[in-house]
Amino acid sequence: MSRKVVERLKAQFGALGPGRGILETSDFRGDECVVVGKADWQAVATFLRDDAECAMDMPVDLTAVDYPDRAERFEVVLMVRSLTKKHRIRLKTRLAEGAKLGTLIFVWEGVNWPEREVFDMFGIAFEGHPDMRRILMYPEFEGYPLRKDYDISQTQPLVEYRTPPSSWAGGEGKFAPFDRHEGQPWSRVDWQERAHGRDIQVSPAIGLQEHQRPTLSKGHEYVASNAAPADPEE
């Protein structure tokens, strides 16, 4: 971490008026941290990358912290490092619920997935992000799990079977389960029916299937064990 970067940022973004530019700086346990206004998020990041003295060329991590008691409840935290100068800095900004933040994907491409993860876990949308989908959770998940008001013991509703979009495979694609005349049938064998000599399987997806199962092995018929062992010569 480096004091010089903080000084550089202060000189550049120090006096932009209330709520803009640099709001706070801190230095806890040697971690330099700068809080910037949400409007200047992209400008400060671009400066950090392009300025010759900062030269922050490695995105390290992007995450968020939720403080539900504050008016601006989310803190988005970005950590970057410079490979040439070998210093680091932590950049933060504060957001109210529902507010959007400009994406940094055009500054460092590596924040693509972390921004998706912050969206997934906290519900903070990044403006200008080309692919704002959930990344760790499934699309039907309700709520944002890392918010403090999301109870850890909460359960989620069951998800319906998805119907694949018709655009796949030119609109006429085949999806499992296949039609009953195709492929190898898959299901549990109905042993009750088999016992009565009928070759029927019941599949939950296709329904009844007759005479479709490949012939099963007849198995080994075991004789009574007290029979004399076969003579190896024979």
Partner: peptide, 18 residues
């Protein structure tokens, strides 16, 4: 109270804890 970012070299790269 406070926050730190600490990083070590894990098996696959920089393993950090914020």
């Amino acid at each position: 109270p406070g926050e730190v970012y600490s990083y070590t070299e894990g098996g696959n790269g920089e393993l950090g804890f914020f």
